[in-house]
Write a protein that binds this DNA or RNA. Sequence first.
DNA 1: CAAAATCATATTGCGCGCAATCTAATTTTG
DNA 2: CAAAATTAGATTGCGCGCAATATGATTTTG
Lengths: 163, 163
Amino acid sequence: MTDKRDEAETDDIPAGMLALDQQLCFAVYSAAHALNRTYKPLLDPYGLTYPQYIVLMTLWEEDGRTVKGLGTTLGLDSGTLSPLLKRLEAAGYIHRARDRSDERQVLVTLTDKGHAMRREAVGIRLQIGKATGCSIETLQALTADLQALTGRLDSGTTRDDDT
Amino acid sequence: MTDKRDEAETDDIPAGMLALDQQLCFAVYSAAHALNRTYKPLLDPYGLTYPQYIVLMTLWEEDGRTVKGLGTTLGLDSGTLSPLLKRLEAAGYIHRARDRSDERQVLVTLTDKGHAMRREAVGIRLQIGKATGCSIETLQALTADLQALTGRLDSGTTRDDDT
DNA sequence: CAAAATCATATTGCGCGCAATCTAATTTTG
DNA sequence: CAAAATTAGATTGCGCGCAATATGATTTTG
């Protein structure tokens, strides 16, 4: 019975639009949490969190990146990455070392354990794929729409030149 | 040079599927962060965070709910909600009181300020709607797909009776 | 009715995520 | 070349999000 006060206190906005934006925001919010919950039991045996796993995936794509580079790819800053990478190093998945040619930078490289985890990840991916229960086309469409959405949102926050 | 090792170390999974699940997961992850970033400057003037705003939206739909009820709707537990509601109360948006007929429960009700915020939210919604830059149909489709995805993921984590 | 089980909420600890601040290294300027 | 500006990381503080635990209140059981 959440539908009892349909137009009670909102009279400034077209009726149909009322909940739409909210629904999308909440849908993204919930989906992110649900994904996190789904990954957790799969990653727990490896002592990894979902954000840590994402960092590893990024390094599997391209090893030996800087903290800054990872942050740009992932949309995270050093306040998030520094402690996360420290924990990944303590867990033995990565190695951190200052770049000799530019001592400001820290190069993040995979250890043997970090590389080996890539093979373990195959099983995790299968589990996740099964859990989503989506067809390839649906996955592709969803992903593309979300990427487009993210792009528009971020272009609006980094520079608001839209009149 | 992220495309130099196309099939290097993964040989257990069909090629095209390789990155798809990852992409979806990362897309949801990124979209959630992007939404958060978009909301932040809009909510800051009111001293609200995005999760707090979501709780208010829930209460606008139905006021006078219990902590447990809110948690069920939002997929959050008391460990998250208790301190969040405390802050919402401290900020003057809600009131918390033990249910006299069952002293275990805490009833959460909107204050005048909490109700008033609903009108302020109209402007926020317009901004968000504009920031998404999506057509109504795209928003609806995206929302529906995400809800379906969340539903499947959660049904898998709460009870794994698939196969 | 009293003990046990259940239930609603609160608290603690840990890991993000982000703003703000700090330090050290490099680059730019004068 | 030295001062100023920029850059890369690290640190601190705060608010989620969640597991684990604790505390009272209610219900169930014996």
